[in-house]
């Protein structure tokens, strides 16, 4: 049983990691009061640019950096439109997705059939030798470790730092934050860029580690799931992490159930992650006050300093 359990858990971790990155990034963006629905497009750009960089330079770090920059670059377009030109956030995000799907396909056109062995695993000495826990937690690549670290960092940032407080203030009431003298536009721009960079890493994880290759549209809707997870998490980093693992976990478990020969139609099996997410959301949404406390009140509303 342990023989199956350990690799199954590892698979769940790898399936959940891109969701963790993309959703955490989007959460920070939303905390600042901005809703960017372009995650899928930013992920795809991260995936293709990261893949090009790594296959051209053979440097893992440059690959990840390129993926990050690609995602951030895409989000910069979004930032200019919604912050600079007051464009509607929802529609601009959707347009960014259309744009990103097209642009990534265009950029990646010569990459069909290009293989890459994937970024290396970095087992942590000693820790990775611990039975059971070692292989599960300490034998991953840098991006998986990074997803753990970033979850903690984001959580710490929001709760313990002044900058985190300011970010939340801006998201809760941009007018009040502006009146106090915080640079609302600048803070939102940084939050959007962070979200883009994280989506870029999520995409890079897909093309560098998860299935190291480039194929058009390879994110296959994961950007949308990440968006849903932010809502699911009621804008709390720990819950984003939990949500990503819940979704990833059930996705993998249903594949295992199929492989074991469960007599349920595969379509029904494939519905499970979505249904489970809805059900858990219903369970944790009872406390309206607590959700209100964490959700950015200004989300989606445009801001202009002169108003």
């Amino acid at each position: 049983m342990v023989d199956i359990l350990i690799p199954a858990i590892i698979t769940i971790i790898t399936a959940s990691t891109p969701l963790v990155y993309a959703a955490l990034g989007e959460m920070i963006t939303e905390k600042s009061g901005v809703l960017n629905l372009g995650v899928e497009g930013m992920m795809l750009m991260g995936a293709v640019i990261g893949f090009i960089a790594v296959t051209q330079t053979s440097s893992v770090m440059l690959g990840i950096l390129a993926a990050m920059l690609a995602g951030a670059g895409m989000s910069l377009i979004f930032a200019m439109l919604v912050l600079g030109l007051q464009a509607t956030q929802v529609a601009t995000g959707l347009a960014l997705t259309i744009f990103g799907i097209g642009l990534s396909a265009l950029v990646g056109q010569g990459l069909v059939g290009v293989a890459y062995e994937g970024i290396p695993k970095l087992p942590i000495p000693l820790l990775s030798d611990i039975p059971f826990i070692g292989p599960i937690l300490f034998k991953h690549d840098i991006l998986v470790y990074g997803s753990f670290v970033i979850t903690v960092l984001v959580s710490w940032f929001l709760r313990k730092t002044r900058a985190g407080l300011i970010l939340r203030a801006v998201g809760d009431s941009h007018d009040a934050a502006h009146a106090i003298g915080y640079p609302v536009i600048k803070i939102r721009c940084l939050a959007i860029l962070f979200g883009g960079a994280m989506a870029g890493i999520a995409g890079g994880y897909l093309s560098l580690s998860y299935s190291p290759l480039w194929i058009e549209n390879m994110s296959a809707g994961r950007g949308w799931i990440a968006l849903a997870l932010v809502v699911f998490a009621t804008w709390r980093p720990g819950r984003v992490f939990f949500g990503a693992y819940l979704f990833g976990g059930i996705t993998i478990l249903q594949l295992h159930a199929q492989a074991m020969g469960a007599g349920v139609p595969s379509q029904v099996m494939s519905m499970l992650p979505y249904l489970a997410t809805i059900m858990v959301l219903v369970l944790i949404s009872r406390d309206q006050k607590k959700i209100k406390m964490n959700s950015p009140a200004c989300i989606g509303q445009p801001f202009h300093p002169s108003s």
Binding site: L81, I101, G102, A105
Partner: peptide
């Protein structure tokens, strides 16, 4: 290729959404 259509559509939408700023500003 269809990829170009996506890029072009994205651009069209960006401009449409951005130009609405002129109504209020």
């Amino acid at each position: 290729p269809i990829a170009v259509t996506g890029v072009f559509q994205g651009m069209l939408l960006f401009f449409l959404l951005a130009c609405d700023v002129l109504i209020r500003y």
